[in-house]
């Protein structure tokens, strides 16, 4: 009888301790998230590197089937831009809205691109938001260096 009571006490204290421990982890995690709100969002560069295989799912904001960033206007961009050239010719470029507009105009004047109608606004907004230039300066650091031992 006495032993059973002791066992029950032991079990109860173990359970209490476990719950307390889990509670600590939860609170700690929440505090970490408050400090690091970007934890569950990948940055754009990360997601670009993630695209190694064509697939039909959308992962990390890049539509893996076509290589475009999944956002409003993507469908219109695919329909109007990838008829003649690959998505890569778009996604490797960075331009301001003005620059994208000038490119569309150039393609209309010289490359048989049709009138985009109401889609032009949508496409321009999509491109200038998702493929905007970043300041690079006059010379950048060497990046993505794969270190290897030289014999």
């Amino acid at each position: 009888m006495e032993n059973t009571f002791r066992d029950q006490i032991k079990l109860l204290s173990r359970m209490l301790f476990t719950f307390f421990f889990l509670f600590l982890i939860l609170i700690g995690g929440l505090f970490y998230l408050i400090d690091n709100p970007e934890t569950f969002e990948s940055s754009k560069t990360d997601s670009l590197q993630d695209v190694t295989e064509a697939d039909d799912k959308v992962e990390n904001t890049i539509d893996l089937a076509n290589g475009f960033i999944d956002d409003e206007g993507m469908e219109a961009t695919i329909q109007n831009c990838t008829g003649c050239h690959s998505a890569q010719l778009v996604t490797q470029n960075r331009m301001s809205r003005e620059g994208w507009k000038a490119t569309i105009k150039w393609m209309q004047e010289t490359q048989n691109l049709w009138d985009l109608g109401a889609n032009e606004e949508l496409i321009l907004t999509y491109l200038s938001k998702n493929y905007a230039p970043t300041k690079k300066g006059r010379r950048q650091n060497l990046e993505n260096i794969e270190w290897y031992e030289l014999e």
């Binding site: 470029n93 331009m95 230039p133 690079k136």
Partner: peptide
């Protein structure tokens, strides 16, 4: 690919 502002075309 190094130009700033970026230049249009294959990078």
């Amino acid at each position: 690919s190094e130009f700033n502002p970026p230049a249009k075309g294959n990078q």
